[in-house]
Design a protein around this nucleic acid. Structure first.
Lengths: 246, 246
DNA sequence: CAGTGGTCTAGACCACCTC
DNA sequence: AGGTGGTCTAGACCACTGA
C-alpha cells in the first residue's frame, strides 16, 4: 500500500483510490458476485490496513456509480440488475400517459456469425471472431415499443441460444449476469431519428417510412471493456425516451 | 441548528443536509452569484457552528450536482454556464465525425404572448400570464443543426427582446444568468422521432416529412421551479444526441 | 509564505436490522 | 445485544495556488 506521502511519485494516487481498485478487482474476479454482500467497512479496513473512513470514501464513490449498494444496518452489496431499483437504469422508456411500463421481451432470432469490421472494432474483437446476433421485440401490454438488434462477443456468452432466451423469465442483463457472469455497468448511447424500414415498420406496427427513434448503444463491463453493441428502434407514438440533465 | 440527537423528531435531517439548505438559500438569495467564490470551508464551519468535515460533506454533495465547483488551492465557486466545462451539460449534441462542435445561435423571432393552458401548466403560471416565445436556430459551421422554440415566463425575463439576443455573444443560459439572475440547474427531456413540418424542414434544410429528433425540455432553477419550456427539432443526418447511462 | 481544498486517522455516538 | 452503515468531531498533514 503506497502511502500518499510519496509526494514525488509519478504514479501517486490517494489511498482511497487504491482501495477502490482493490475492491474493483475483487468484483472483476468474481470473489463477490452480483447481489452478494461484501465484507463490512471495518473488516475491509483491517484487511487493507487503512482506517474505516478511507474504506468508506472508496465505497461511497463506488455506490455513486452503482457498482455497490449500501443498506443501513445490513451491509454493502454488489449491485445487480435483478434489483428492481436498477431495472430502468438502462431503459429510458416511458409511456405518454406516465404510467409504469409492463414490458415483455419477445426474442425473435438468435444466431452466430463472424464479426465484420464494424462489429469487431466496436466490441474490440479480431475481425472474423465469433459473435452472436440477437433480435427481439419489447412490448408494453402487447403493444410493440422497441425492436432491438444486439451484437455480442460469442466467447463470453458461450451457450446462448434462442431457447434459453425464450425460457428466461428475467431481463436480458439479469440473464447475462447470472448465467455468464457478465455485468453491464455503463453504456454509451447515440440517438437519431430515422425512417422505418419495412422490417421495423412491420414489427412495430407503424407505417413504412414513419419516423422512429434509433438508439445505438455500446455497453461496457468492468475495466471499460465493451461487451454489447445494440441498435434499437423505438416507436415514439405512445412512448418517449426520458432523460434527465443535471 | 438541530443536532442529530433529536432522534424522535419527525423532521429530523442530518446536520450536513441542514448546512446544504443554508448554502442553497444563500445561492437563491444571490448572496453568492454565478462564478463567485464562496467562503472557505473553515469560515462556513465557524459561521454555522459545525465542524469543517460537516461543511465539507454538504459541499461535496452540491459539487456532485454541479451547483458548486471546487478548485484546490483557490476555493469553492458557484457554478456558471460561462464555464466552458458546463457548456455542453445541457446540449447533448455531437457530430458524426466526432469533432468538437462550433455552434452559433441565430435568434429568429422573439415576442410576448399570454400563456395558454399547456404553457401555464408546464411553467406553473396562471393561465393568461405573460410569457415570451423565442425561436432560434443552432448552426454548426453554417450547417443548421437544431431549431428551437422556447417559452419563458415573461416576469422573470423582464426586458428580453430579439435585439438583446442578437447582440449577445454568450450562450442563452449565460445570458439568463448574468442579465436576469436566473440560473438553470436541472432539466427534464422527452425525446421522440417526428416528421419534419414545412417550417422546420426549411430551416434545417431537409426534406419535408423527413425524420427529426424532437426534444422537449423543461428546465428548472433552484427549488425545482420550472423556468423554461423548450421544443427542439434536431437534424440527425450529421449529428446525434449523445447520452451516457451509468 | 499563508490560505485553500484534499486526504487520512481515531474515536464517539446514532439509526437500522437481525437474532 | 451485537453488528452494520450513517453522522459528526478534532486534529494532523499533503497538494495546490497566488502574493
Amino acid at each position: 500500500m503506497t502511502r500518499p506521502s510519496n509526494t514525488h511519485s509519478p504514479t501517486f494516487s490517494p489511498l482511497y483510490q487504491q482501495i477502490r481498485e482493490l475492491i474493483t478487482k475483487s468484483l472483476e474476479s468474481g470473489e463477490w458476485g452480483p447481489g452478494d454482500i461484501i465484507p463490512s467497512e471495518s473488516e475491509l479496513a483491517e484487511r487493507f490496513g487503512v482506517s474505516q473512513g478511507t474504506v468508506r470514501k472508496a465505497i461511497d464513490e463506488m455506490a455513486a456509480e452503482n457498482l455497490l449498494v449500501r443498506r443501513q444496518g445490513k451491509g454493502t452489496f454488489v449491485d445487480t440488475h435483478e434489483d428492481p431499483r436498477s431495472y430502468f437504469r438502462f431503459l429510458r422508456l416511458a409511456s405518454n400517459e406516465g404510467d409504469l411500463l409492463a414490458l415483455k421481451s419477445v426474442p425473435l432470432e438468435c444466431w452466430r456469425a463472424k464479426a465484420g469490421t464494424d462489429v469487431a472494432r466496436t466490441l474490440a474483437l479480431e475481425p472474423g471472431a465469433s459473435i452472436i446476433i440477437l433480435r427481439r421485440l419489447l412490448q408494453n401490454e402487447n403493444e410493440p415499443a422497441v425492436f432491438d438488434e444486439i451484437y455480442l462477443p460469442g466467447e463470453l456468452f458461450s451457450d446462448l441460444t434462442l431457447d434459453i432466451l425464450k425460457s428466461s423469465e428475467m431481463s436480458l442483463y439479469s440473464l447475462f449476469e447470472s448465467r455468464y457472469a457478465v455485468r453491464m455497468i455503463r453504456a454509451d448511447e447515440r440517438l437519431r431519428a430515422v425512417s422505418a424500414d419495412r422490417v421495423s415498420a412491420e414489427l412495430l406496427q407503424v407505417a413504412e417510412g414513419s419516423p422512429l427513434l434509433l438508439v445505438e448503444r455500446i455497453t461496457f463491463t468492468y475495466g471499460n471493456k465493451p461487451v454489447e453493441w445494440r441498435r434499437g428502434f423505438y416507436s415514439t407514438q405512445n412512448f418517449y425516451y426520458h432523460n434527465e440533465l443535471g
